[in-house]
Design a protein around this nucleic acid. Sequence first.
DNA 1: CTTGATTCTGTTATCGATAACATATAGGAC
DNA 2: GTCCTATATGTTATCGATAACAGAATCAAG
Lengths: 341, 341
Amino acid sequence: MPGRKRPPTMADVAHLAGVSPMTVSRAFREEASVKQETRRKIREAAESLGYVLDSTAAGLSSRKTGFVAATIPSINNANFADSLRGLTEGLAETGMQILLGYTDYDVAEEERLIEQMLRRRPEAVVVTGGAHSDRCRRLLANAAVPVVEIWDQPEEPLGAVVGFSNAGAASLMVDHFVEQGYRNIGFIGGDSSRDTRGLDRRRGFLRALREHGLSDERVLAYGMPPITMAQGAEAIEALRARWPETEAVMCVSDLSAFGALSACQRLGLKVPGDIAIAGFGAYDIAEHANPPITTIDVSAREIGARAAALIIDLLEAEQSSDLSLVEIEPKLLARASTLKG
Amino acid sequence: MPGRKRPPTMADVAHLAGVSPMTVSRAFREEASVKQETRRKIREAAESLGYVLDSTAAGLSSRKTGFVAATIPSINNANFADSLRGLTEGLAETGMQILLGYTDYDVAEEERLIEQMLRRRPEAVVVTGGAHSDRCRRLLANAAVPVVEIWDQPEEPLGAVVGFSNAGAASLMVDHFVEQGYRNIGFIGGDSSRDTRGLDRRRGFLRALREHGLSDERVLAYGMPPITMAQGAEAIEALRARWPETEAVMCVSDLSAFGALSACQRLGLKVPGDIAIAGFGAYDIAEHANPPITTIDVSAREIGARAAALIIDLLEAEQSSDLSLVEIEPKLLARASTLKG
DNA sequence: CTTGATTCTGTTATCGATAACATATAGGAC
DNA sequence: GTCCTATATGTTATCGATAACAGAATCAAG
């Protein structure tokens, strides 16, 4: 950290290169018209001074910060990480940078975060999931930038949506269970009203059970989201203790499903012989477990990529026609953990 | 997106509240002296206008952006995610925000990222790992802000360091294997020079083998980092094919170890009976696998937390005494996957 | 050589806040 | 009531860039 002297500015570069600051500013943007030779001189001067553009100032002046704000519930979740990757990659060509925040599945925290992020004047906002505080909705509306909600299909969207119905996705699993001949079917999920996507899955799952004329009583809520492997393990034991006749269980995520699977195996239960186990999210772990775990693939990365494309469109359009709905189709991946004989 | 009218500024709030802009500015900072009553009036005015502070402008003026830049190799890695969480939580009280970038294990990409981030004028920078391009080193040196390197102990640190010796950590595993009586020992890692931490682990592992007078030939390099479960699975089969006498294997990460474990079980091999398998990183999956996988815990979250504490110190100190080295001690977690009898 | 179009470069005002300094008001101590 | 200190507020200049406009240089065509 050699001496805290102030970093060089465009004026310094301009001085050294013998041009005006404005020309330096232009030289740093590809599209602007600057003579080849001048540009070279400027780049050299900049490099020799160790000059780095100040996008804080640039943003203030041009009213374009190059930020896209994004919130996800948890950083430690491969699904959201995949979506984030899709988003980052999709925005890469535009040079936009992601401003990331974790809500920890909490709408109050989301509100705090969104406000903090809006202070940075992002050019677009991506939020995960459909539940938001009133103030948060107001803040976003006032921000007058495109908003994209992902991973859900909210009843009252804030703007554009790239998502799927969590309830509908879960019902796919019921269909699969029924088709495989299971009748005593259970569900393991989180304990909190905070994970609205998890709750939607449960709701859709139970409704589908009823539609098939089956009992929807075998439900176990366990722990705060994100529900862990350990909680999946505890939950399956509790479920088996209470409803020993259970033949098949869906867990709210692949992680809990894996925990449940491991717990069963430790207890000497055969999966799927004694009990079938399914998850949600198409994590790597579901594919590589023994047996591989039946799951639902919601194309997490695609969600991010589509959101990026949508943002690019909306920013170009200027027009505020952003009530688009991009529907992602969840796919059931039938694997050994639920397949009979 | 109701009409793209310009958002309100402090001047608007000041006008409505009947005070000067400066007082509004003060009212938004806790420490500043503003009469209770005035502050209330201002907050009300702000809320009714939907005013949100512009930290772009604030940062320009005060020369404090409230950003800490951080790079990690991959977003989809629970270890780095944990460090990031520790960092975020540690910085929360200061109100600083993380500006995140993924290098994808690539020094050129790291250089690009660092420059992009430095344009935002972060008040500190956290980088993961010890390999950097010359230009990147120069950029960081010129930036005149504290730099903390994590997850490594570089020979030529850029600034402060919060890390551990990857080579030393891997040698712990050799000690464990030898103690358990294994003699024919192998290593599975990535194929690329890009994951320097992975290479360090391999190097340390092989050196330790030689120090114990054992053969260091059973090494398989497989795929690009981050090495996946699938690659772990392929690799263990290839390793067994080439060196059937192998009794114990360390994989460069828990993910590949889990892949290897699953592959062995599918082949009907007993773990640890026929072959012992260990990983690295203390992922959840290692704990919940069947059998649980022996691994090395490097306290990923603590790394982030310590980095945060260090940054807070360095920023307070003003003094540029930032060659601190915080040593994290890796711990071997001996589990069933390598324990005899 | 003049003209007009095109390309390149400079000048001035401004983005929205805060620092630094100046001033006003309030509250005790004597 | 005076003086002093502490608290509260206002004024002016500035942070580092870019927008918008204006002016100079270049070049081809007539």
